[in-house]
């Protein structure tokens, strides 16, 4: 565990907190993509299959990971519940039109071609990594469709993007300090994921400096 990894995970938790705070305080899930939340649910439930095989108390790190995994799984399930049930009438269904089955199918094909080992577990793990890289796309499309973005929603996406950017710092750290090699799959997907946010980051920082709401062209 290094400072980049810890900061990244904290930002990930903060982003989830911001998302739930936005929905709860405004009693509305306007501007939030159900499709992105659904993709994250798939990502977490395929990535964290090892919850069934790993003893949480094996080490401090596995305990920490287990807590985080359960938190990510349960919070994304809860978010989906809120959007689909309690605040259903505020969900912006008309603009949330990204065709996610292409993302899911594309990730599945990539996972069958690129994986660490040819085992079901490794292929499912690779699938989750590919899917996570593109899971934000429906959310970014929704923002572009609607233009004006609520502050708390833009903070949410900013935290989520920063989380993966800090993971890159963590990987560079581990490469030199722990001589950790052969992580090409996670590295490549994490970099693609971070690059997807580049455009958003630009407009976010611009809006923060001007003290205005984020407006996407």
């Amino acid at each position: 565990m290094n400072i980049f990894r810890l900061a990244a995970d904290v930002l990930h938790v903060v982003s989830i907190f911001l998302l739930l705070l936005k929905i709860k305080t405004s009693h509305s899930c306007a501007g939030i993509s159900l499709k992105t939340q659904f993709l994250y649910m798939i990502v977490f439930s395929t990535r964290y299959l090892d919850l069934f095989f790993t003893k949480p108390w094996h080490s401090a790190l596995t305990f920490y990971n287990t807590i985080m995994k359960i938190l990510f799984l349960s919070s994304s399930a809860y978010t989906i519940y809120l959007i689909r049930n309690r605040y259903k009438h505020t969900y912006d269904k008309v603009h949330d039109t990204f065709r996610i089955h292409y993302l899911i199918a594309g990730s599945a094909v990539l996972a069958l071609v690129f994986h660490i080992r040819l085992t079901p577990f490794e292929i499912i793990w690779a699938f989750s990594v590919f899917l996570e890289a593109v899971a934000i796309m429906p959310q970014l499309l929704l923002l572009q469709e609607t233009g004006q973005v609520e502050n708390i929603t833009s903070h949410y996406i900013f935290c989520l993007g920063s989380y993966r950017a800090l993971y890159i710092c963590n990987w560079i750290w581990r490469y030199f300090m722990e001589h950790r090699r052969n992580q090409w799959l996670a590295w490549a997907c994490g970099t693609v994921q971070t690059l997807l946010y580049a455009d958003f980051f630009y407009y976010y920082i611009l809006s923060q400096r001007q003290g205005k709401k984020l407006r996407l062209p």
């Binding site: 793990w125 950790r180 090699r181 992580q183």
Partner: peptide, 10 residues
């Protein structure tokens, strides 16, 4: 840890 594909990360 090398080659294990990042399973100790989230």
């Amino acid at each position: 840890a090398s080659g294990s594909g990042g399973k100790d990360e989230l």
